[in-house]
Amino acid sequence: MNIFRLIGDMSHLLAIILLLLKMWKTRSCAGISGKSQILFALVFASRYLDLFTSFVSVYNSVMKIFFISTSLLTVYLMYFKFRATYDSNHDTFRVEFLVIPVGGLAFLVNHEFSPLEILWTFSIYLESVAILPQLFMMSKTGEAETITSHYLFALGSYRALYILNWVYRYYFEGFFDLIAVVAGCVQTILYCDFFYLYITKVLKGKRITLPA
């Protein structure tokens, strides 16, 4: 555990809590892509199956259980409790165009051809593109609420901080996981346009609005 990894994990945690608080306080999931949230639930469910096969640390297990349960809670709130506020007309990204190619790639490019390892690889690849339905939705509506922007900034920062963690681990521990690093870089790059808008607008007190 190094400082980049710890802040990254805390940023990830903060993002999830921000999203849940926003929905709970406003009794609404307007502006949030349910498709991205389903993909995140799928990411955690397929990655953390090792909860049943290997123990790393209490921290590791608690975080995994937290991520799985909160992602399921988010999906439940969006599709059941606050379904009336879900903006499905703007959430039209075709997720099969992500899940099917990513599934195929996980079969072809992995560290080891075993069920758990393929599922782990699938989750790493899927996480890297899971935000696309959310970004697509924002480009369709042309705006994002400030709290949604904070959520996305925390969520994007997490993988960017993991890149610093991988640089650190490469130099000081000789650790290098090519699959995680490449996917993590792709994931971070997808957020760059949003990061630019966040810094130039949200941090100056303005909402994110895109030209029609």
Partner: peptide, 10 residues
């Protein structure tokens, strides 16, 4: 260099 059998990252 290699990947760990037990994955400690989240």
């Amino acid at each position: 260099l290699g990947y760990p059998e037990t994955k400690d990252e989240l």
